[in-house]
C-alpha cells in the first residue's frame, strides 16, 4: 500500500516553492532581476503560502476527524454551524464598520457556535450525542446563514454590502504575516485536540455504545470535537473567509490509502488539505480573470460541489 504521509510531504516540498514563485509576477530564482522580488517574496507570497498551509491543514484534519465522529463520509466541518457562525460574526463587524475587529468577531462567532453545540449535544445524556451534534449543527448553520443574509440586506450602503459579499467568498489574497499569526496557534491547538481524540474516534467506528464499553466518554469526546473543529474552522474563517469542501474532499480521497481508522486519517488529511489549498490558490493566482483573481472559496466550491454529488450518487448505488 502507498504510504500517504511521505508522498504528501514530497508533494508539499514541490508545491511550496511553486507557490512562492507563482503569480501575476513570476519570480525566477535563477535570474533574480525582478524588481522588488524580495519584497514580493517576503511580504506577499510567503505569508500567503504559510496561510494556505495552515488553513488547508486545519480544514483537512478537521474533516477527517468530523467524518470519524459522525461515522459519515459526507460530513464536512463547514456544515456544522461553526463556519457560518464565524462568518456571521465577521459580517456583523464589517456591517458595523469595525473591519479591524473582523478576525476577533469571527473567532467570537465560532466560539458562540461551539458553546451552543456543546451545551445542546453535551447535555443530552450519554447516548446519541453524535446525532444531536449533527442536527444542532445544521440548525445553527441555518440560523447563522439567515442572520448573515439579514445583516447583508440591512447593510448601510452598497460599498459595505459589496465588501461583505466579497469577503464571504473566501480568499487568501493580500494576506500578511499577522493573519498567519492569528490563524496558526488556534489551528495547531485544534489539530492537537483532534489527534488526541483519534483513539476514541476509532472506537466510535463500532457505534457509540460499543465505544462506551471500550472506555470512551462521549461527553469528553464531544467537547474535544467541538473545541478542536471550532478552533480550526474559526481560525480559518477569521483569516480567509469561508473556504469549503477541503474537509469533505481530502479525507475521502486519502481514506483508501490508510487502514481506514479515523485516527490514521487525520494527519494525512491535514497534509493533503494543506497541499490542495496551496495548489488551488496557485491556480487561482495564475488563472486570467477580468477584474482580479478567482476567489479561492468559489473555486473550491466549483470543484467540491460536483465531487459531493458524485460521492452521493456512488453511495446511493452502493446502498441500492
Amino acid at each position: 500500500m502507498i504510504r500517504p504521509v511521505p508522498v504528501l510531504l514530497a508533494a508539499l516540498a514541490l508545491a511550496i516553492p511553486l507557490s512562492l514563485l507563482a503569480g501575476q509576477v513570476w519570480l525566477n530564482p535563477l535570474a533574480p532581476h525582478t524588481a522588488n522580488a524580495l519584497t514580493i517574496l517576503a511580504e506577499l507570497r510567503a505569508p500567503r503560502t504559510a496561510l494556505a498551509l495552515v488553513i488547508g491543514a486545519g480544514l483537512g484534519g478537521a474533516g477527517a476527524a468530523m467524518q470519524g465522529y459522525l461515522r459519515n463520509p459526507l460530513a464536512d466541518p463547514g456544515l456544522f454551524g461553526v463556519a457560518p457562525s464565524a462568518a456571521f460574526g465577521a459580517v456583523l463587524a464589517l456591517a458595523l464598520g469595525l473591519g479591524t475587529l473582523l478576525p476577533l468577531a469571527a473567532l467570537a462567532g465560532a466560539a458562540a457556535a461551539m458553546a451552543a453545540l456543546g451545551l445542546i449535544a453535551g447535555n443530552a445524556g450519554s447516548s446519541n450525542s453524535t446525532s444531536l451534534f449533527a442536527l444542532a449543527g445544521l440548525m445553527l448553520a441555518s440560523l447563522s446563514g439567515a442572520l448573515t443574509s439579514l445583516v447583508i440586506s440591512l447593510a448601510p450602503n452598497p460599498f459595505a454590502m459589496s465588501e461583505i459579499v466579497t469577503w464571504l467568498m473566501g480568499s487568501l489574497e493580500a494576506r500578511a504575516w499577522h493573519d498567519v499569526l492569528l490563524a496558526a496557534p488556534p489551528t495547531a491547538l485544534g489539530l492537537v485536540l483532534l489527534l488526541r481524540a483519534g483513539p476514541a474516534l476509532d472506537a466510535l467506528t463500532l457505534g457509540e455504545e460499543t465505544a462506551r464499553s471500550l472506555g470512551v466518554e462521549p461527553a469528553r469526546l464531544l467537547w474535544c470535537m467541538v473545541l478542536g473543529t471550532g478552533l480550526v474552522v474559526g481560525a480559518g474563517v477569521a483569516a480567509a473567509g469561508i473556504i469549503g469542501f477541503i474537509g469533505l474532499v481530502v479525507p475521502h480521497l486519502l481514506r483508501p490509502f490508510t487502514d481506514q481508522r479515523p485516527s490514521s486519517l487525520i494527519l494525512p488529511s491535514a497534509l493533503g488539505g494543506a497541499l490542495l489549498l496551496l495548489v488551488a490558490d496557485c491556480l487561482c493566482r495564475l488563472l486570467p480573470l477580468a477584474g482580479g483573481e478567482l476567489r479561492i472559496g468559489i473555486a473550491l466550491s466549483l470543484l467540491g460541489a460536483p465531487f459531493f454529488l458524485a460521492l452521493l450518487l456512488r453511495l446511493r448505488s452502493e446502498l441500492a
Binding site: 463500532l206 460499543t210 471500550l214 487502514d259 481506514q260 481508522r261 479515523p262
Partner: peptide, 23 residues
C-alpha cells in the same frame, strides 16, 4: 461487551478492528 449489532462504519481490516479491543 459484545453488542448484538455493530456494523463498523468504516471498512477496517479485521486485524485493526480486533486491535480496538486493546483501547
Amino acid at each position: 461487551y459484545l453488542p448484538q449489532h455493530a456494523h463498523p462504519a468504516w471498512n477496517l481490516t479485521a486485524e485493526a478492528l480486533v486491535r480496538l479491543g486493546r483501547l
